[in-house]
Write a protein that binds this DNA or RNA. Structure first.
Lengths: 150, 150
DNA sequence: AATAACTTGTGTGTATACCAATGGATTTTG
DNA sequence: CAAAATCCATTGGTATACACACAAGTTATT
């Protein structure tokens, strides 16, 4: 509990005790910054978000844009921009869904598949490089705890 | 090591083995999304980034804009926007540095101090709420490992 | 002292990321 | 079946976040 480390405090005392560098949010932001740097070093063709969308699309087959967004934890506005850019790069193709006129069915193009398969090993390596400061046991625990925070 | 879970693979096999939901980057993004939601629920006046900058400024006293950026892990372009918005809200004041004509010295205003002290306890609570899915021991480990990944 | 190298703040461009609103399509319900 | 509720894609707005380039100021080098 919070109270074990921070017993009831006046607002001022709480402010004194607030050290930014100890906050989860700040640490997660920094850890993520490091990961993004590692990613763009290894894969410069795609952003992590674009790769996530492409990978998920290769995993799922043909899905609607919003469904892909849900599968990758992006809201409608975000996934639209990502898909637009993937289409500009000819990695993803879209066709209207004959069963539902609202939907756009997305599929990886041949080039999309090729790129995904070509960079998947690198993506694995990026995950490993990101976790490299931890030993095997620590990596397992970290991923487990991270999953619990999801 | 990676090889314990993923022995040498052909590109296609690597693609098969690539499950987005197991990747560190994806998990960190989702954990961060959850944290941001908790934050904005508790503190709606400021974004996490703005609060981080304000908190660090209260911690450091008078520093230049770029120095504040370094202390909060934001690059020059990012910290500029953040500080601009904090100034618009009258939480931060800027004066030219007499010793270095390039620099702008930043300081929290009285309102900035007041707001920081008022929300610091809430910020602590947000950290706790974010970590709530973990028990005490897990929280300690998680923060430790997170720090190692920084 | 003059030049080079660096720092600081700023501006531009691109890419997430989310909220709110909208119009059209589909599903659910009364 | 008709109305309400929901879903879908899109748009506009705001806020990080980083890369790059730039001008002006400062420090280091020669």
């Amino acid at each position: 509990m919070m109270t074990s480390k921070t017993p009831p405090l006046s607002a001022t005392a709480a402010a004194d005790a607030y050290v930014l560098d100890d906050q989860v949010g700040f640490l997660m932001r920094r850890a993520n910054q490091r990961h993004l740097a590692i990613f763009s070093e290894g894969i410069s063709d795609l952003t992590p978000t674009q790769f996530a969308a492409l990978a998920k699309l290769c995993e799922l087959g043909a899905v609607s844009q919003n469904a892909l967004g849900r599968a990758t934890s992006m809201d409608g506005a975000t996934i639209k921009g990502v898909v637009d850019r993937l289409r500009l790069k000819d990695l993803v193709a879209s066709t209207p869904d004959p069963d539902d006129q609202r939907r756009i069915l997305l599929k990886p193009t041949a080039a999309g598949w090729d790129l995904f398969e070509a960079v998947a090993p690198t993506a694995h390596q990026i995950t490993q490089d990101t976790l490299a400061p931890l030993n095997d046991a620590e990596q397992t625990i970290f991923l487990l705890l991270l999953q619990k925070l999801t």
